[in-house]
Design a protein around this nucleic acid. Structure first.
Lengths: 146, 146
DNA sequence: GCGATTTGGTTGCATACGTGACTATTGATT
DNA sequence: AATCAATAGTCACGTATGCAACCAAATCGC
């Protein structure tokens, strides 16, 4: 009659996400002084190249206020710069500075390493199941069309 | 050289979790006026029967401050009650009231339904992969031992 | 027994977050 | 050209959160 939290999909996912997050957070937070929105904006910027705040938000699945605050923080740090584009003066193109590029490189390696550290504890067949499952869930929830 | 956010496990998980959460939140939040910690404490209580706040926190993967505030809120609502146990006057046994039981029953059905709505969009073999993947990840991150 | 440590639970504070309102600019309708 | 709607981004406000400090009760070490 109950729900059995342990088997409830949203709960399982939330708990795992929290565990993964706790694994990587020390890297961007303690070692680099970033918060999650800032880390994500940086990663999105590296993925996309110079882009608008809206595009960064779409690519990193974040609300525009989070992006706005993250961009301001990263700009104060001189890791990114922005310039308003003359053809549409509402939007601004955001790009990484050399300092930002450098910091991002230093950041990626340990981040990857933490991810690998977890994946290495999973059997190869289970890793395949994981990828398959995530793709299926992404399709089922429509997150990738965003 | 970059990370490709789309393929980075913690990001994929976080994004999916957010989507699942958005699917079920309307049920406990809009329809019942609960927040997530409160919903989880209630579900944990249903799973475990009368228990201490510490046990509820362990079962629902929540920090003790979250549990503390959730318990107070649910108590004010008269959905749960607590009584200090005489053998150890630090801890208190929390249990559901009849009102709480009733509310929880009304809550479970639509919650399940939302979960099913998502799972139904996934092919059976992919659902199997999902369960396998989650179990593997749970083992790899050690979340279930907590 | 008595101080030191641990455990159950609460509180205060500083920060993070989501929502909605707001400004400014552009595009669509007529 | 005037109006209306949509878009880019920021801001303000109330709430949620995590952390550290805290209190009270129980347990350990000797």
């Amino acid at each position: 009659m109950g729900l059995t939290l342990e088997n409830f999909l949203p709960y399982r996912m939330a708990r795992l996400t929290e565990a993964l997050s706790a694994e990587i957070r020390p890297v961007y937070k303690d070692a680099f002084g970033l918060n999650r929105p800032e880390w994500r904006v940086l990663a999105a910027l590296a993925d996309l190249g110079p882009s608008t705040a809206t595009a960064l938000g779409a690519h990193s699945a974040q609300h525009k206020t989070k992006v706005s605050r993250a961009v301001r923080a990263l700009e104060l740090r001189r890791w990114i710069r922005r310039e308003t584009v003359m053809t549409d003066r509402r939007s601004e193109i955001i790009s990484m500075t050399d300092t930002g590029q450098h910091a991002y490189c230093d950041l990626v390696a340990p981040m990857r390493e933490r991810e690998t550290r977890i994946l290495d504890r999973i059997a190869p067949e289970d890793r395949a199941a994981l990828n398959r499952a995530l793709s299926a869930l992404e399709a089922a929830t429509g997150v990738s069309e965003g």
